[in-house]
Amino acid sequence: MARLAEFDRSDVLNKAMEVFWRTGYTATSITDLVRATNLKPGSLYGAFNSKRSLFLEVIDNYANRSLTRISECMEQSDSAVESITHFFSQLCQDIECDTIGKGCLMVNTLLEMATEDDEIRTKVTEYLSSIEHYFYLRLEQARLQGEIEADADCDSLAKMLMTGIWGLRVMSTTRPDITIYSGITSYLLSALPVVKR
């Protein structure tokens, strides 16, 4: 059994995440993970039991970190509409920094494994639903505060924004001209029924 104190678990998860993110779950081998983490196979198995167990922990780690970041981003302004706009601005910056077209780990995983592994599909779906719920809450706040129309369907609007995120993330794997992202984002945000002041 590996002595877990010999390495930083968080560091190992981050290194493993990068491999899974670039390569995908199925194509990632134990050899790839050993090379990336600098752990011996026995230590890797001793700490995480299997490639699948390691991947599940990577997903949890990624989700917790991302949801914290999204929550902080959404709370940067008292204006719900401004918060959503800021989120999409940050998303475009993240995509522009993705010079190798990795896309989104969660979206990639869902597309790869939706029909292969119920537990992984459930974890990823719950993560994406949490993001959608952030949008719903902010849109409902915007509706109640008069930023968007009083009869706005916040649930459908939140789903529309999530569809946009999916599209942007999948598109980013083809690495189109970066100006395309800001154009799509502008159209997405223009669909919000903002009350003119």
Score class of each variant (00 low, 15 high):
residue 13 L to G: 00
residue 36 A to W: 01
residue 94 D to F: 13
residue 96 E to S: 15
residue 35 R to T: 03
residue 84 I to H: 10
residue 185 T to S: 14
residue 85 T to Y: 14
residue 53 S to D: 15
residue 123 K to H: 11
residue 61 N to C: 06
residue 151 D to M: 09
residue 98 D to I: 05
residue 188 L to T: 12
residue 54 L to M: 09
residue 101 G to Q: 12
residue 83 S to G: 04
residue 89 S to A: 09
residue 113 M to H: 01
residue 128 L to Y: 10
residue 40 K to N: 02
residue 17 M to G: 11
residue 180 I to T: 13
residue 176 P to F: 06
residue 186 S to D: 15
residue 1 M to W: 11
residue 168 L to F: 02
residue 32 D to L: 00
residue 110 L to C: 12
residue 86 H to E: 09
residue 128 L to M: 12
residue 32 D to C: 03
residue 15 K to P: 03
residue 30 I to Y: 13
residue 126 E to Q: 06
residue 157 L to E: 04
residue 140 E to L: 11
residue 195 V to M: 12
residue 77 S to D: 10
residue 42 G to Y: 06
residue 17 M to F: 13
residue 62 Y to P: 10
residue 94 D to Q: 13
residue 1 M to K: 14
residue 61 N to L: 05
residue 187 Y to I: 10
residue 153 D to P: 08
residue 189 L to V: 09
residue 69 R to K: 15
residue 158 A to Y: 14
residue 33 L to E: 00
residue 52 R to W: 14
residue 155 D to M: 10
residue 138 R to H: 08
residue 105 L to N: 08
residue 66 S to M: 04
residue 183 G to H: 08
residue 34 V to A: 01
residue 92 C to W: 04
residue 77 S to K: 11
residue 35 R to K: 05
residue 52 R to H: 15
residue 141 Q to S: 12
residue 181 Y to P: 04
residue 179 T to P: 04
residue 6 E to V: 03
residue 46 G to V: 05
residue 128 L to V: 09
residue 13 L to D: 02
residue 36 A to T: 01
residue 131 I to P: 09
residue 25 Y to I: 04
residue 151 D to E: 06
residue 78 D to G: 09
residue 114 A to Y: 15
residue 118 D to W: 13
residue 17 M to H: 12
residue 79 S to H: 11
residue 44 L to H: 11
residue 119 E to Q: 09
residue 49 N to P: 00
residue 93 Q to C: 04
residue 196 K to Y: 12
residue 71 S to W: 01
residue 43 S to C: 01
residue 127 Y to R: 01
residue 45 Y to A: 14
residue 152 A to N: 01
residue 5 A to V: 10
residue 185 T to N: 13
residue 155 D to I: 09
residue 71 S to M: 03
residue 129 S to M: 11
residue 74 M to G: 01
residue 178 I to E: 08
residue 20 F to G: 00
residue 141 Q to Y: 07
residue 144 L to H: 10
residue 149 E to H: 12
residue 160 M to Y: 15
residue 159 K to R: 14
residue 149 E to D: 07
residue 154 C to R: 05
residue 99 T to C: 11
residue 80 A to K: 07
residue 155 D to C: 08
residue 54 L to T: 02
residue 57 E to F: 12
residue 161 L to G: 02
residue 15 K to E: 00
residue 135 F to Q: 02
residue 53 S to N: 14
residue 98 D to H: 08
residue 124 V to E: 14
residue 103 G to V: 07
residue 75 E to V: 02
residue 197 R to H: 13
residue 189 L to C: 06
residue 81 V to K: 01
residue 14 N to M: 06
residue 129 S to I: 00
residue 3 R to P: 00
residue 125 T to V: 04
residue 68 T to V: 00
residue 61 N to G: 00
residue 172 S to D: 03
residue 134 Y to C: 05
residue 2 A to S: 10
residue 37 T to Y: 01
residue 100 I to R: 15
residue 172 S to L: 04
residue 46 G to L: 04
residue 71 S to A: 05
residue 5 A to L: 11
residue 68 T to H: 02
residue 154 C to L: 01
residue 182 S to I: 13
residue 20 F to Q: 00
residue 60 D to Q: 03
residue 70 I to E: 05
residue 3 R to I: 10
residue 33 L to V: 03
residue 63 A to F: 02
residue 120 I to W: 10
